[in-house]
Design a protein around this nucleic acid. Structure first.
Lengths: 367, 367
DNA sequence: GTTAGCACTCTCGACCCGAGAGTGCCAAGT
DNA sequence: ACTTGGCACTCTCGGGTCGAGAGTGCTAAC
């Protein structure tokens, strides 16, 4: 029942489970209290609020031990204790209870997805919105893309205004479209065929050439594309380029306002760096291979994050999509004082749900 | 040379131009000083910094007059003056200089658009990024959509996994795609034709039925769609539905972090309401008709905004796109202490640039 | 109409101080 | 050996005071 998280590259295993039963329950109580109140928690209030059947003095000594182990910290003498990043990790891995989302919540979420006939992008939007609302944190969802997608089907359409539309279906289920404006069409091929029939012929050539190839393979075969009519070759090259930038180019976020409300980020400038990193798409792109290595929920707490700007936030993320096909990311971002017991099951459930939706949408895969 | 802004529904014209030359120059100096420093500005520093050839005492009396007119306000006795919303408006309409973007900036922006072969959505992303960077405010860009778009061309594609892809080109240049998963295909039509030729035939029927119609017209003709094969009718209905929700469903924002840095929003919770309103798409949808009524830059300052949550922010927005075709919104959002002299020319330039791009992309229109 | 002078007001930061919370340690109890 | 009550100690936080500084409004003189 212990959930499936890992610290990132996780250099060395922390001195985890050498904790006594008392230490464990005190740590759990401190974390859970702090998650709710956001104020350092003292021995007295801890005993009262969590019905520990010991005296504050006993709790104090346990706290001192936990602090020596690096799981708790003191803002200053004579304030209560606050969990350290390591403390949160122990909590998440060993102390947190109930790692399953309520049946009721599951149904509610499912219902929202069922309610409307949604297109793929709006699934992502909805997923972000649900994540944000349910965890009161910022949610991030990236579309599912495959690094090794193969060309499926190309379709060329002649439009009334003289421009051309190219639609490319990839094997990972994504659809790319590119429009060639009339100026380009004219430049490339002043007397190009503009009948739909001609374009169908060109598309047939492209399909024969490209279907089943990955973008790099197709590029290697680029020389032979030169034989194609100029305006078709242009489309093909442009498509290749686009299919190749698998970088996460589009990110759906929601609930940034939630994080603004957290006392940790009350003076908004602290969030600035985080937002900027999040915007820079390479951050998520960089996260992708790490998360993709193993399915399930990954938790990255504070300094475990390799990026300096993220030292004060936690991420709860999961990949979704079939591991050998298109992969996307989905998760939440918040202060290290993140409601893990809520966030982790929610992210897990949503990732499995998205898996379901994607396979039902695109059918089983065969290759 | 006076720029082309309007207060929103603008109930009554403010007691605008009854200002003496002295009052005008003092108001201008106060606004420009405050835009830079964000601190209430006093008579002494004003005279020094802006080389007014009068004594502080003279400035003080002018300030008192301006305050009586409601253009300046006092945070408290014995602090400097701060422009009121009305003061900003007078400034924007009558006092602001140089309403043209530098040639250098124009070229730089153009260059960024030229540099990469971008698809339509990435234009929007780039536009938002440029706006945000150039004005140090939050930028908002919505895609161009037409309320009265007509159906252009429908294409149906049979995919390898048994699902169908429908691509619909609208007269406003937008391309919608919808995928029918295999389960739906099977349910609707267990022994549906799956050859591409069959789908081409069905597409031809759809094209004949729908081309040139608006979504409402097409819906009225819905009865006749029943004659179509079930799986095609399903696509058509689903497309109709999608084409009809012209609501601004997708909004590109950038630079929210910029606003977080402004002292006005230092304690982030003030931004919360603003972000929420911005997320709720109906806000922009509601703005659209107002802005669309006249092209050019519209400035909405603080309380001029009908929405309560926006009482402390200013918007500098412009529509883009041909007025009788697809229309989108583009602009920036920041504190009422917005750098208008920078923001207005930038928004104006970007809106004309997007106009250019769209017409060159989609060609001239004929109907 | 403009300016210098002047009394007045208000904020802001520094400082102090006491209350309160919480700790660490020690000695006594079980 | 662990637990507990007691106690001295430390540190923050809020309130209050105070002086400096900035800025105003008014008035009288230019």
């Amino acid at each position: 029942m212990t959930p499936d998280q890992t610290p990132l590259p996780s250099e060395t295993r922390p001195p985890t489970l050498e904790l006594s039963e008392r230490q464990r329950s005190v740590l759990r109580a401190v974390v859970e209290d702090y998650l709710l109140t956001a104020t350092p928690v003292g021995s007295r209030t801890l005993v009262m609020r969590h019905r520990l059947d010991v005296s504050p003095a006993t709790v104090r000594s346990a706290m001192a031990e936990l602090e020596a182990l690096g799981l708790l910290s003191h803002p200053h003498t004579s304030a209560g204790r606050v969990p350290s990043d390591l403390g949160y990790r122990i909590y998440v891995e060993a102390l947190m209870r109930e790692a399953q989302l309520d049946r009721a919540d599951q149904l509610m979420i499912r219902h929202q997805f069922r309610q409307v006939q949604l297109t793929s992008n709006e699934w992502l939007r909805l997923a972000a919105s649900i994540l944000a609302g349910s965890t009161r944190s910022a949610a991030v969802v990236t579309p599912a893309r495959s690094r090794r997608a193969r060309f499926g089907h190309v379709q060329l359409v002649a439009l009334a205004d003289g421009s051309r539309l190219a639609v490319l279906v990839l094997s990972d289920g994504n659809v790319l479209q590119r429009r060639l404006d009339r100026a380009t069409v004219d430049r490339l091929n002043p007397d190009a065929p503009i009948s739909q029939a001609d374009l169908d012929g060109a598309a047939a050539v492209l399909n024969a050439e490209l279907t089943g190839l990955t973008a790099p393979q197709a590029r290697r075969r680029g020389a032979r594309l030169e034989l194609l009519p100029a305006h078709v070759a242009e489309v093909a090259a442009s498509m290749l380029e686009e299919a190749d930038q698998v970088a996460v180019e589009e990110v759906f976020t929601d609930g940034i306002a939630n994080v603004l409300e957290q006392p940790e980020f009350a003076q908004g400038s602290k969030l600035r760096g985080v937002l900027e990193v999040l915007q820079r798409s390479d951050f998520l792109a960089q996260l992708m291979p790490v998360l993709a290595r193993r399915s399930g929920v990954h938790v990255i707490i504070g300094h475990e994050n390799s990026n300096d700007a993220m030292h004060e936030v936690s991420l709860v993320f999961a990949p979704y999509g079939a591991p050998d096909r298109a992969l996307g990311l989905l998760g939440v971002l918040g202060p290290t004082r993140m409601p893990y017991p809520r966030a982790i099951p929610t992210v897990r459930y949503l990732s499995t749900l998205m898996n379901e939706l994607m396979t039902s949408q695109y059918g089983e895969h065969h290759d």
